[in-house]
Each structure stands twice: as C-alpha cells, then as structure tokens.
Design a protein around this nucleic acid. Structure first.
Lengths: 138, 138
DNA sequence: TATTGTTATACTCTATAACTATA
DNA sequence: TATAGTTATAGAGTATAACAATA
C-alpha cells in the first residue's frame, strides 16, 4: 500500500471506532444494546421474517430468536405467524418500538455532527467517493 | 438534514456495517474475537498498562483484565509488573502474538480492497475529507 | 424430507461492586 | 487514604447442535 492508502486505512479505522462507540452510547440512552437497536433499525423498512433478519444482520437464526424475544418482552416488536406459511414469523415494530427507535436516532448525533463539518460541495464529493468505495454507482 | 446529508449518513452506516463484519471475520480467521484482535492492535505501538488499555478501548478495567487473561493464557501477550510502581502491569505483545496480529491484518482485506477501488487522486481527496470529518487537520 | 424457527448449552463480552496490593 | 488491578457475579451477544412444527 502507498502512504496515502495507509493514512486512509487508519482514518477509516478511526471513523469506524468512533462511530461504533457513538452508536453504543445512543442505543444505551434509549435503554437498548447496540445489537437490539440495530435490529430495530433493520425493521424500519417494514416487517421481516426471523430468517430474513438473520441474513441481514449477518448472524445465526438462534441469535435473532433471542434478540427478538427480549425486544418483544418489552413490547417494542411483535411476532406474527404468516397466514400463508405458519412456519414463518413476521416481526414488526410496535408504536412503542417506534418511539424508542426515534429516541436512538435523536441520541445518535454522530452523522449530523460530523457530516455538518463539511460544506455542501464537500458532502457531494464525499458521497461520490463513498459510492465508489462501497462498490456501487451511488 | 439535506438530501445529500441523508444519503451520506446512510453510506457511512453501510461502510461501518461492512467494515465491522469484515473485521469480525478477519479476527475469527486468526482464532480471535474482534475484541481480542482490537486489543492486540492497540498494543502495536508498544506496551500499555491495563488502565491505559481501558481508556483507549473505551471499556471498564475489569473487562481488560478478562481480555488480557485470555490472550495471556494463549501466550499472545505478556503482563509484566512495572518496577517503579508495582501496582501497574504493563502488557506487551509476545512473538506469537505478533504472528497472530499479522494473520489478522492479512485476513482483513477490507481496507486495501475498498481503498484500491479509488485512484490515487481520489484517495488523497477522500483522506482530506475524512480529516475534516474526524475533526483534525489531517 | 426439507424448511422455519426455538431450545439447550456454552463461551465471550461487558459492567458493577467488593476486594487486594501497593503507594 | 487513594490508585491499579483483580475477583465475583450477572446480563447480554453469539454460535452449534438437537429439536418441534409446518410444508
């Protein structure tokens, strides 16, 4: 790797480290673990089956069972058997869950704080570069 | 937030998610958990006291004790009492630890892979922007 | 028989509180 | 008395293997 690439690798490491720490804190403010907050966030776009959650969260299905069980016990998500295939359970966010979701987002100031340090033009530039890094047209 | 800022927030989320997953896998290839690999990485610059590690890793001292105990049991780090203040234990990486450290870095292809998608000029551009985002001159 | 999800279990991560050794 | 680190303990995250229900 070139010198620039080394610097960049270190900067990304620092960014991720700070981001993770900030997300942990935001989740905690809302009374959740980071894993629970992350699962809740993945339900934003609508309900998911247990298996879909395992795929999206890159973890084992048995882990999803436990996370959902804890969130359900607190009334933040609901688990409903699919009428067409009763093996499948669809998980969705309850109104109380939406409140907590909003609390996490409100407490998670990292993105707006850090992104706000850039001008509009810089933001567009960064977005273009990240699009490349993430391997899609952006 | 503007539309660009929203896109950017999502891109950073995606980047961090992918980065964390890749780091987990790299650590696992080397037979470590992500937390253990991270601690080992923080010892790259030289030895640290238990307390310094707790500060740098943003976690409780009792947690460091356990992580170091497991790494020490596998011969990857050594815990040596400071001669000047025998309350302090200095932790350093053993030769075997350095081997494992290298194994983690080798398996962690994310940075070189992704950064390699950018031209040299784009890399310099990104580095400058990240410097701003991280809140220092870079 | 194959698939979805759960249960049982074990290990790691993490924090809090109480403790030991040293200063 | 204050500080560095450890121990005891408990809850959460995670995976593997065995299992139940449904298809």
């Amino acid at each position: 790797m070139t010198e620039v690439a080394d610097t960049l690798a270190r900067q990304v490491w620092d960014l991720v480290f700070a981001y993770d720490a900030a997300y942990d804190r935001a989740a905690q403010v809302a009374g959740l673990s980071a894993a629970q907050a992350c699962l809740l966030e993945h339900l934003s776009g609508g309900s998911r089956s247990m298996g879909e959650l395992a795929v999206e969260l890159l973890c084992d299905a048995s882990n999803v069972t436990q996370l959902v069980t804890r969130l359900e016990a607190r009334g933040l998500v609901a688990r409903v058997p699919d009428p067409d295939d009763r093996r499948i359970k669809r998980v969705s966010v309850t109104p109380a869950g939406h409140d907590v979701q909003r609390a996490v987002r409100r407490a998670f100031e990292f993105p707006s704080e850090r992104i706000g340090l850039l001008t509009d033009q810089e933001q567009r530039q960064l977005s273009g570069l990240l699009g490349k890094v993430l391997g899609r047209a952006s």
